[in-house]
Amino acid sequence: MERITPELSTEEIRDIDAEAGHYPHKSAVLLEALRIVQQHRGWVSDGSLQALASYLKCPIAELEALATYYQLIFREPVGKHVIYCCNSVSCWMLGGDGLQAHLQNRLQISPGESSRDGLFTLLETPCLGDCDRAPVMMVGREMYRQLSRETLDAMLSELRARDGQQPMSDHREQ
């Protein structure tokens, strides 16, 4: 599955060093380093973890502890688009669970899984802070609000159409 070599790229090292300058202790940069690697590679493989551990001179188990604690650090490959589906109370009252079932049916996946074409990963999340426009989902860093089955289908078509132009769903504008 590993497409990118485990060694950190110059861009990754540059980004990590820039972050490290902001903290008094080296241990504080570990989380940011994980985020940076994921931003470049889509997820954090065992090899990436190893590369980070040797660059930051920290025990690999410590990085693993952080990576597994934070749900938005992926230790498995994810699809190009990661869909965060809110399962909290406001969205649920307005039919969020039905929408999620519809989405799962369309993509033929359960939460935590990726679609066979490698385009979509579905994750559940407790609240996205947009209750007044429930039900909502987030794809990458983009919010989709007041969803219905129709708008959800449109969202999927739009994402499929967009595929190829924007490689990483988790891409952040710096």
């Binding site: 025990p59 690999i60 188990a61 410590e62 693993e64 502890a65 597994t68 604690y69």
Partner: peptide, 9 residues
């Protein structure tokens, strides 16, 4: 020791 950690949450 450095190789035993609390993983996950």
């Amino acid at each position: 020791g450095t190789d035993l950690q609390a993983l996950g949450r």
